[in-house]
Design a protein around this nucleic acid. Structure first.
Lengths: 337, 337
DNA sequence: TTGAAAGCGCTAACAT
DNA sequence: ATGTTAGCGCTTTCAA
C-alpha cells in the first residue's frame, strides 16, 4: 500500500506511549491526563491520522454504516428520502450505502444478504414490487438485526415502519377530481403486493363512495412492476381506452409520468383533457404536459424519521424497541396549464 | 451480537480442520484436496457462511468497496452513470458507496476524506461546480490512491478520465438551431470552473462561426451552481429577456429543466416558441412543455468505463497506469410538440 | 495436503 | 494515569 496511513502504533512509538493510551487519548477518555491528550492529539493532527474503521469495526463489531434499499434512485421520491436519511446519518457519523433493486425481488434479497455479510449496522428499506417472500427478513429481524421499513412496508413483519398517509392522500386526490366534475374516475396502480398501493386503493374506493360513484373493477388497472417497464403502462392505457372514464387517479411516481408518456406516444387514444391526479414527488411536475394534480409525500421527512428510528435501534443494544408505525402527511399541489 | 455469523473458526472446529485449511478450501486453493474442498464448501453452504469482509479487508488491506462522488443523484444523468458503475462493480464484487456534494466544494472534500479514511479502494468522481482547489486530490493521487474522474474533470490532475464529446455535442445542438433558422442563439451555461461547460462553450462558439453568426458576450449567461438554485436561472432569464434572441442552447441537465420551469413561472417574459436545445439525460423529456431538443450523453457507458478503469487501477497494484482520457459520443433527440 | 502461528489496526479487560 | 495482553475474523508465511 503506497498511500499508507499512520497507525495507532506508529503514534505510540513516536511518542513513547502505549497504543492503548493513544487510543484512549484520541477518544477523549477521562482516564487520560490533559497533557497526554494534547500531546497525542497534536501529533495526530500533524500527521493527519485517521482511525482505521475496518480495524475498529472488527474490534467493536460495528461498521458505522447503514444500508438503504430502494427500487431506484432515479425516482425523485426515493432520492429525496435518501437525502433525508443522509441528513441524520452523517450527523451521527454513519456512512450510508445505497442499493437499487429495480423492482427485482432477487436483487433485493441479494442486497440484504450483502449488507448483512458486510456487517452493516442496519438496513432501511422500501420493498420491491415483486417481493412476496418475507421469510428471510423475518429471520434476520428475529435474530436482532435492525431493519426499518419505509413507504412500501410488509405488514406481517414486526419492525419499525415509516409510511405515508396513503389512504388520505388517495381520498383527497379522488375527491378533488370529483369536485372538478368527474363522474367516472379510473385508477392506475401498481402491484397488489405493495402495501402503499393497497392503502391508496382503499382511499380511492372510500372517496368514490363518499361521492356516490360506483366502484368498478374494470376501471382499475394494475402494473406489476410499478411502471418500471413502460409496456405495462401502455397495455393498461389501451385497456382503459375501452372505458368511458373522465378522470384518473394514479398511484405512483413512475406510473404518473409513465401515463403522461403513454398519452404522448398514442395521441388520440385517450384525451389529454381528462383530469389527472397522481402520486409523484418529481420536482419537474410544473413542466409536465398535460398538467396534473400531484399528491406529494413528505419524502425527506420520511428518510429522516426512518434513519432516526434505525439508529436508535442500533444504539439501543439489546433493548427491544417498540415497533411503532409512523404516518406522515401528504399534500396536494395543482399545476395550471 | 445477537445475530452472529458463522466464522472460519466455527467451521474449522466443526469439521476438525484448521482455519487455514478452511480458508484455502473456500477460496479454491490448488493446494487443497478435492474431498476437503467439497466437505468444507458443503458445510459452508449449509450454515450459510459468508466471509467477514471487515476482517478480510483488515488482513489484505482492501475493502472491496469504491466511492462515487456526484453533485446529486436526483439528476438523471448521474443516476444513469451510477447504474453503469454498479453494473461492473457488482460483477467484480465491489460494493459502491454514493456521496452527494450538492455542488459544495466543502462537502466534496469531506467525502473524499471520509472515503479515504474508510479505506475505500478507490474513488470515482465528477467535480462539484464550486471546486477550485485541487491540491488535496493531487496529494492523494501522488500517494497512489486510485481516482478516476468523469464528466466534470480537472485538467490539471494526472489521473484517468472519462468524458463526453462536449464540444461536438454543443456544436451539433447549435448547428441544429441554426438549421431551424435561428439567427441569434443564446447560451445558458454553468460555472466557468467546470471542464464540460467550457468545452460546450467552445463548441457553441465554433458552430456560431460556422454559421457566420457573431459571438456576443451578453448572449451567454453563467449559473455558478449549475442551476441547483433556481434563482440563478431566473436571474439569467431576466437578463436574457433584454436581448432579442431567437434560439437557445443550454449546457446542463439542471439548467435545461430549470429554464423550462422559469419560462412557466414568468409567462410572457420570453416566448416559449423560441427553439431550445439542451444537454439533458432526463427520461421525461418527452413530456416536457415546451418541447425541446435534447443532447444526450452516454451516461451508463460512462459509468461503466470509469468503473472499469478504476478497478483496473486498483488491481494493478503499483504498476502505473496510462492516464488516458476516454471520450464518449453524444446524440441529439428531437421531441415533437 | 494440512496445520501452527503471526499479525492486519484497533479496543477493552485487567494489571500496575 | 498508563501499560500489558488478548483477541475481533481472516490470510499467509513457514513448517510438517
Amino acid at each position: 500500500m503506497t498511500y499508507a496511513h499512520y497507525t495507532l502504533k506508529d503514534i505510540a512509538k513516536a511518542l513513547k506511549l502505549s497504543p492503548s493510551t493513544v487510543s484512549r487519548a484520541l477518544r477523549d477518555s477521562h482516564e487520560i491526563s490533559k497533557e497526554t491528550k494534547v500531546l497525542v492529539n497534536d501529533f495526530a493532527k500533524k500527521v493527519n491520522y485517521r482511525v482505521n474503521p475496518i480495524a475498529r469495526g472488527l474490534k467493536v463489531r460495528k461498521s458505522f454504516s447503514i444500508g438503504i434499499i430502494v427500487s431506484e434512485i432515479a425516482n425523485n421520491f426515493f432520492s429525496q428520502v435518501v437525502d433525508g436519511i443522509e441528513s441524520v446519518a452523517y450527523a451521527k457519523n454513519y456512512q450510508v450505502v445505497i442499493a437499487q433493486t429495480k423492482e427485482s425481488a432477487e436483487r433485493e434479497s441479494l442486497h440484504v444478504e450483502q449488507f448483512y455479510a458486510r456487517s452493516m449496522d442496519g438496513i432501511l428499506m422500501a420493498m420491491s414490487s415483486e417481493t412476496h417472500n418475507y421469510e428471510y427478513l423475518h429471520d434476520l429481524i428475529q435474530r436482532g438485526f435492525p431493519i426499518v421499513f419505509f413507504d412500501r412496508v410488509p405488514q406481517q413483519l414486526n419492525s419499525p415502519k415509516v409510511i405515508t398517509d396513503n389512504k388520505k392522500g388517495a381520498y383527497e386526490a379522488v375527491q378533488y377530481l370529483a369536485n372538478q366534475g368527474c363522474k367516472r374516475i379510473a385508477h392506475l396502480t401498481s402491484s397488489k403486493k405493495l402495501s402503499n398501493s393497497m392503502e391508496r386503493l382503499a382511499g380511492y374506493k372510500l372517496a368514490l363512495m363518499a361521492n356516490h360513484q360506483e366502484y368498478e373493477e374494470k376501471l382499475v388497472k394494475y402494473c406489476d412492476y410499478g411502471g418500471l417497464q413502460q409496456t405495462e403502462i401502455e397495455e393498461a392505457l389501451h385497456e382503459l381506452a375501452k372505458e368511458q372514464f373522465d378522470g384518473i387517479f394514479i398511484s405512483g411516481d413512475r406510473l404518473t409520468t409513465g401515463y403522461l408518456q403513454a398519452l404522448k406516444k398514442f395521441p388520440g387514444l385517450i384525451s389529454d383533457q381528462i383530469p389527472i391526479a397522481g402520486f409523484t414527488n418529481s420536482d419537474l411536475v410544473d413542466i409536465f404536459s398535460p398538467s396534473i394534480t400531484a399528491v406529494r409525500q413528505s419524502a425527506f421527512e420520511m428518510g429522516k424519521r426512518a434513519a432516526e428510528l434505525l439508529i436508535e435501534q442500533i444504539e439501543a443494544k439489546g433493548a427491544k424497541p417498540e415497533y411503532q408505525t409512523e404516518v406522515l402527511p401528504v399534500s396536494l399541489i395543482h399545476f395550471a396549464e
